[in-house]
Design a protein around this nucleic acid. Sequence first.
DNA 1: CGACGGGACGC
DNA 2: CGACGGGACGC
Length: 762
Amino acid sequence: MDRHRGGERYVNSNNNSDPFHYKQQHSRGGPPSSRTNFSDGSMNPHPQHHRRSPNAYRGPHWPAFDSPPRYPPTDAVAVGTGGGGVDSERFHSNYQMPPPPPPLSGQKRGYPFSSDTSGSPDGVDEGGFAKLFVGSVPRTATEEDIRPLFEEQGRVLEVAFIRDKRTGQQQGCCFIKYATSAEADRAIRALHNQYTLPGGIGPIQVRYADGERERLGAVEYKLFVGSLNKQATEKEVEEIFSPYGRVEDVYLMRDDMKQSRGCGFVKYSHKQMAMAAINSLSGKYTMRGCDQPLTVRFADPKRPKPGEPRGSGPAFGGPGFGPRFPTPGIRPPPNIGEPLQDQTGPNAWHPMSPESLRPISNQGMHGFGNQFPPRTTDTTTPSSLGGSFGSVSGTGNGFLTGLAASSAPTSQLPAKPLPTGGPQISQLQKPLQSPQHLPSSGQLHPPASTPFSQGPTSHALFRQMNQVQISQSASQSPFSQGMPSQQSLGLTWQSTVSQPQMQRNMSSAMGHTPLSNNMQLHVASAIANQQQPVPQHLVQHLHQPPSQLAQMLSQQTQNLQASFQSSQQTFTQLQQQLQLMQPSNESSAVQQGTQDVKQQSPWPGLVQQVAPSSTAVQSKADVVPASSTASGMNQITGPVKCNWTEHTSPDGFKYYYDSVTGESRWEKPEELISYEQQQQKLSAQQPRIQAQPHGLPYQQAQMQAQLQCQLPTYVQTQVRPPQQLQQASQGSLYAVGMTGQQPIQGIPAAQEWMWKNKPAGA
DNA sequence: CGACGGGACGC
DNA sequence: CGACGGGACGC
């Protein structure tokens, strides 16, 4: 059980085995009717093992369908160790439907982009609902035990226990119908493997019911990845692929001994992401310790195993080859070879905004572009979907995530991840990899959630935060163990501290910047894997009263936040610049491919912008506690910065989002306008410092390596010559995000370190 | 150079 | 009735 990692993988899912004991049947859950009382979020009727921070969203108030919640309500509660009381008794079978999500505020046309899979404006999915399958439900559970929990995440239309047809006894699982996939998604993220019902043996499993994904038009793009380092973990693989889009799932093929076979599968929710990954990685990226580059191509349809009819099986498209259309209605582009632009996206909406397509289009053809047979090219999707998918889900997590996210302005999808310096980098840069990835990844998913930070974003955040807890409680997860590397610098200290606090800070600090998603995720994972070196200064204080310690941490957190903020800003800016620059090379860039784009990437700009900001931050980073977040940010941003970023809605309309305030509008904000003008001037003045394609990365690598060995992440952002600032900021990101880095000196993570640093050809 | 898991899926 | 058998890109 290590897999299961969907969007947020590595949640250490302990799939305990089933608890089928208990009996007692119960209410059926028809549509809710009367009212209830769980007005107070606090009423966490289900205390118990892993309850994550209690109601992220409580009660009647609907969390998220509105504007981006800036500060997720994390009343973080201690990690549930043992929850106690159970007030389930308080519930009676009456439930009140939470009020429908409030209308979007401030948006002209309501939801510019629906957050649900189908893309329907009213937020209702196909058939008006999205059904989830929930496993590990104690047989004794009643609707009262379940519904409130799920209602925290969305409008629950129905709760239906699966029971033995004959005996009527519950089977330990149930179906939950949500009004939309966005809500279902949220529930998955928030609850899957994260909450153990009273009487339950393990955390509930929450995922789409068999066939739901297909029914909802979801599609996944599965890539086969070969030539992986056999020591690599799912997480590491994810990191390599995340620059091209949110990685929905990573599955490594292992032998009986659980040894990796050196190959596996990576899933994305959009073809563009998959193609970008193929074009950028296949044959070009070599994992540390490997002597040959990765092979990345669309996966063949899964070979159906006898007797594995579960799930919708081949919903359409069957395992083999059938129609390869993602969704019934949508058909793939005529020519397969033609990558780019097809909107074959699973979802109906036109996947990427025009701009987004631009970059991507470049990828279409490149060295390996044609590695994959035509068929796979676009089809893959369906088939994989149908074939393996019905049952796939495991993860629960992500799935529709991608879809939901897609609603977001995937606009910048394409931007190619400035992936590794070039085709043949690798070994040395290995560590670098990540940093490079990050930026792009930000572009990939982020924007998505940004505007509507509600759904995905905030949830993701939550989930991540929650996971932290989980991971901690389940610190022995296979993942955390084998990944010394994860404890990337500095972050470790958090372990000692109060998670809640940390979470709160973090969440408030990073909640909405477009690029922040990733960071959150990484940060969370980093935190989750703490358990190791604790910075000296912290150690010294360990004997202090908790309160003080907490405070200290709090401060550090702030510092961290500052760093993040600046990093985020940096990337945001980067992103902006990218946008600015791209227009110029529209299609002309097509044949140039990745590399070129890379060069264009705003390194220069970054430097300029970042410099001032980082500087500002520095001073504060170390000392200033609280206020640093807000003020620091502004300062960071200084004159050169603008929180507004332009995005394109699925329907092609541009809109603007303020990463700081969370505000979004259709009209272009003055600030942005002037900001852009400013930028143009700058870029005009400073021609681009052509970062040597390979050179830069390498430098970064070194620098990072050094930094990593010395300071805690947040400190890294500090002082450094402007020129290096960019690196510094990246370094911090990297540190945070990357797991695969070199271990901190003196703390050799034995094997990991070994293999990672193993000479390439070795 | 490898190729598909994860518990469970009603009315 | 149940699921076997066949099978495959490009490097």
